[in-house]
Amino acid sequence: MNYLLVNLISWLIFFFGAAFPILIVLRVIGLTGFMKVTRFENYHTFYYNMNPSVKIMLGIVVTVVAALTIWWIGAILTVVVLFTYLTLKNGKSKFITGFFLTMITIIGTTWAFAPYTPYVILQEAFHNTTITGIWTWPSYFTVMGYQKELSIQGLIYGFQISMRFTAISLISLVLVMTSTPSQVLRAINKIGMPVSITFSLVVAMRTIPRIFEYIDTSVKIQYMRGLGSNAPKTIRPFYMLVGAINAIVPVIVFLVRGAKDTAISADTRAFRAYRTRTHMQPVSIGRADKTAIMMSVLAMFVTAMVVIMGFGRAIPYL
């Protein structure tokens, strides 16, 4: 009896890490949520007035800061970046989507590290030889690479690692949400990348939200045709997953068929007739960019100070 219970709870804990994020995706974010955070919408606040290269630079600065400093600075950065989502168009809904995406990252990363991280690394990370286990896995869990016990230190370690990623993914999405593909194209061409490569990149950037859109449409059509209509209510959300997987190949065919039209319209506008392109709107450094650059310099300065004060990266992330 006891053996059964231990197994049951262990598998519940195991599936919590897998199923909880997916439930958030299916119930709260949905495919339209992904579409919202990967698609450009026109608006006029701070981020929208910035030069795309400065936005890329901001991303790099956030990466560097999060990589060099102790976890709670990453956490503060995450909160700050998340709150700037409120200034975007439909800021509230983007804030909510961003919040849940961050939650998923935290849970996912914690679960990806906590059960697996060897005690040796934990002892090194916490400068402490005692590991406090809170749950003992059944012995066969070690086949999956699990340690003997789930420990508090393991959970904290996983959480701290997640703080390194969350701010970066949030600030990176800002670039996609607030610049048009052609702005990005211009900015990247400026650093000397060939126009054919940037063209592919821009096609890819435009395609990502469209993939979510078409998968969403396809899933809805499958629902209309009765997918999952006889299933009990509790497992019905998972039919969206089934529908999404079914939709992948048709969506690829649909998008690829449209490629010829895109190619014809690009070629008729003399795409790649010359090596370089001229631009109607010059890429300039405006007031918003100057503010952003000032903020990044300040952030780097604060980082340097913080590292000197001894709040540098505290745990080995490997």
Partner: peptide
């Protein structure tokens, strides 16, 4: 890198 990793 643009969407998630940030060029590290």
């Amino acid at each position: 890198d643009l969407i998630s990793y940030g060029f590290s």
